[in-house]
């Protein structure tokens, strides 16, 4: 496995973790977007999460924050280089596409 493939596998896992914990409020609409900044320690624990770009809907932002907070800990590469480059600090774009409205 190349480094890129490894990273992609971890990214996929982070996505699945967040998707399974993201409960959107009834005010959420397709096309809304919020960007969160997530900071991890090398064990994968979330040490900080904040809104970098608000959706303009407080309940939507809160639901995104909660999804990351509830995840609490992500699986990250044990290789310190890969961790530092990609997972020490990254952003998550929340942009629903599967809502009915």
């Amino acid at each position: 496995m190349t480094n890129d493939e490894q990273i992609l596998a971890y990214i996929g896992q982070v996505q699945r973790d967040i998707v399974s914990r993201w409960s959107r409020p009834p005010s959420a609409r397709n096309g809304m977007q919020a960007v969160l900044r997530v900071r991890l320690v090398p064990t994968g624990e979330v040490v900080d999460v904040g809104v970098e770009q608000s959706s303009g809907n407080e309940a939507f932002d809160r639901s995104a924050l909660l999804a990351v907070e509830r995840s609490a800990r992500f699986q990250v590469p044990s290789d310190p280089n890969l961790f530092e480059k990609n997972f020490r600090s990254f952003t998550v774009l929340f942009r629903p596409e599967d809502l009915l409205l």
């Binding site: 992609l8 998707v19 993201w22 409960s23 480059k85 990254f90």
Partner: peptide, 19 residues
Amino acid sequence: MLALPAVAELQIEVTQGAD
């Protein structure tokens, strides 16, 4: 990532939820 190795900061996109 392949197009922009090293430079691009990681952004993970979430388009679905469990609700």
